[in-house]
């Protein structure tokens, strides 16, 4: 019972934040300069313009316009493009690309960061450790778009190992899909790799001081086995938390990467919508992004609470 109430309060808080965020966006979008009615029909008379505005709900005040938008969204209607077409099909085709980008990035980052973190903790203070942490620190400080541009040109265009940009659906051509995804994923993964390695290193160093590690060592168990069987799992909670929470942040990072590598994800669509002032599309895209962001963060938060009892009843 208590658990149920807990979950309900959590959900209601998420819903409240979500409504706040979408309301904020709906107010912001209304500030875009220019008359939508004139954009739709440049030669409309005053009466026609009023009719168009009424149809789109632009003559309402902020709150009732927001409620109108909300009721539409809840019925699965994501609005229309001013210059024709519905927004929903675009969102439907854009989401997989963005999600794939984020998931691959997460996997690549973990695959690289776990061995690096464990090893640099084990070799703490040596040249390897210092080199790893310094180079990761510098790489992570490199602007994301800079890495993207350089990779696209050097690896993609000049060396010709993989195509520099583009996107192919996974169902169409599997190998080409992964080839195209390689560079954007690599670019996006640089930041997370540095963060995860650093976190894991600190945790592993702390765990290595535990008595049971000393016992395992005195029993003659090999270093490799100690590190990956005895030490890694208890040290990985912070890493998992951080990895899960960074899912949300990756959505923002994916925006610019998508545009550099011409991936038709949500970021590209958002940029296009802002460029052509598609009011309703912008509102829906930002709402979708916020929903994903919040869902990732809150689901992950609850999952961690369920997995690790120590974090329960902790208020962030």
């Amino acid at each position: 019972m208590k658990k149920l109430i807990n979950i309900l309060t959590r959900l209601s808080r998420v819903a409240l934040i979500l409504m706040g965020a979408t309301f904020l966006v709906s107010i912001l979008v209304r500030q875009l300069p220019g008359d939508v009615a004139l954009l739709i029909n440049p030669v409309a008379s005053a009466a026609e313009r009023d009719a168009i505005r009424h149809e789109l709900g632009l003559d309402r005040n902020y709150f009732s316009a927001y409620l109108m938008w909300l009721s539409q969204i809840l019925r699965g209607d994501f609005g229309i493009f001013i210059f024709g077409g519905k927004v929903f099909p675009v969102i439907k085709s854009a989401i997989p690309a963005t999600l794939q980008l984020i998931f691959y990035t997460q996997i690549l980052a973990l695959v690289i960061a776990i061995p690096l973190g464990v090893l640099s903790a084990f070799k703490q203070g040596t040249r390897f450790d210092k080199l790893t942490s310094t180079s990761l620190f510098s790489l992570a400080s490199f602007p994301n778009f800079g890495i993207g541009l350089i990779l696209a040109v050097v690896v993609g265009a000049n060396l010709g190992i993989v195509p520099p940009s583009g996107y192919i659906r996974i169902t169409e051509d599997l190998s080409q899909h992964f080839k195209l995804m390689l560079l954007p994923v690599l670019t996006l993964a640089v930041g997370p790799i540095a963060t995860y390695t650093r976190l894991l290193r600190a945790e592993v160093i702390a765990t290595l001081r535990e008595d049971y590690v000393l016992l395992a060592k005195s029993k003659g168990i090999s270093d490799k086995r100690i590190l990956f069987r005895h030490v890694l799992r208890p040290s990985s909670t912070t890493l998992m938390t951080s990895a899960a929470l960074s899912m949300g942040n990756l959505i923002g990072g994916a925006l610019i990467i998508e545009i550099i590598f011409v991936i038709p994800g949500l970021g590209t669509q958002l940029a296009k919508a802002i460029g052509t002032r598609e009011f309703f599309a912008i509102q829906s895209y930002v709402a979708i992004i916020a929903v994903f962001f919040l869902i990732f963060n809150s689901v992950v938060d609850s999952l961690i609470n369920a997995v690790d009892p120590r974090t329960r009843n902790r208020r962030a």
């Binding site: 979500l18 965020a21 942040n249 925006l255 610019i256 992004i289 916020a290 962001f293 919040l294």
Partner: peptide, 8 residues
Amino acid sequence: ILSIPTLV
């Protein structure tokens, strides 16, 4: 405000 990614 934090629920909308920074860059977006």
